[in-house]
């Protein structure tokens, strides 16, 4: 069965002014769609034709890895945003984990933001859960995905320029600061 492009879980204008309608239209309808399309073309007749995206991320290389991981990464990225859920991490078992590993949500945000600002070139920054349950922050370049290294993704920020260039141009730090305003912390807490 071919891979499918998931629908955006909200309206294209839902994340304005943090992420514009125009950016989401290109990001979802062109970039994300192209990765799905490329992946379907590349897996034909290979052992990955009926594989899951997770298997592709763990085992594939080259174009199949790049496109497969980008399909997964974008779905994961789009799913974590929500309108009217701005910036609130409710008291939960996950908020206790954040407190345990970082001391406060602000410190976590600060470290994650620094990682996102300093990743050179295209890539992703991740909050991950390690095998021992502890949280960590890592950078991956291009299509990189933490599943490849046995880490469980919890939160991600796309720092490919296409994610923010229409809205912020060279000002990646402004994009990252605004990014926190649209995080649906309920989704994040449920991923842990």
């Amino acid at each position: 069965m071919p891979f499918e492009l998931p629908k955006l879980p909200y309206a294209y204008e839902a994340l304005e002014p943090v992420i514009s309608k125009k950016t989401l239209e290109f990001h979802h309808d062109k970039h994300h769609a192209a990765y799905v399309n490329n992946l379907n073309n590349l897996v034909k007749g290979t052992k990955f034709e009926n594989a899951t995206l997770e298997t592709i991320i763990k085992e594939a290389d080259g174009g199949i890895f790049n496109n497969g991981a980008q399909v997964w990464n974008h779905t994961f990225y789009f799913e974590q945003f929500g309108k009217d859920k701005y910036d609130v991490l409710k008291v939960s078992s996950f908020s206790e984990v954040v407190y345990r590993d970082y001391g406060s949500l602000d410190i976590l945000k600060d470290k994650f933001s620094t990682a996102a600002k300093t990743l050179f070139g295209s890539g992703w920054v991740w909050l991950v859960e390690k095998k021992d349950g502890k949280l960590d922050i890592i950078q991956t370049s291009n299509a990189g995905n933490p599943l490849r290294d046995g880490l469980k993704p919890i939160l991600t920020c796309d720092v490919w320029e296409h994610a923010y260039y229409i809205d912020y141009q060279n000002r990646r730090p402004d994009y990252i600061e605004s990014f926190w305003k649209i995080i649906d912390w309920e989704v994040i807490a449920n991923r842990y």
């Binding site: 290109f26 062109k30 970039h31 192209a34 070139g121 295209s122 490919w160 320029e161 296409h162 260039y165 229409i166 141009q169 060279n170």
Partner: peptide, 12 residues
């Protein structure tokens, strides 16, 4: 071919 070289005019 960094996206910043063409994104404002050519996007994807």
């Amino acid at each position: 071919v960094w996206e910043h070289a063409y994104y404002l005019k050519y996007q994807n």
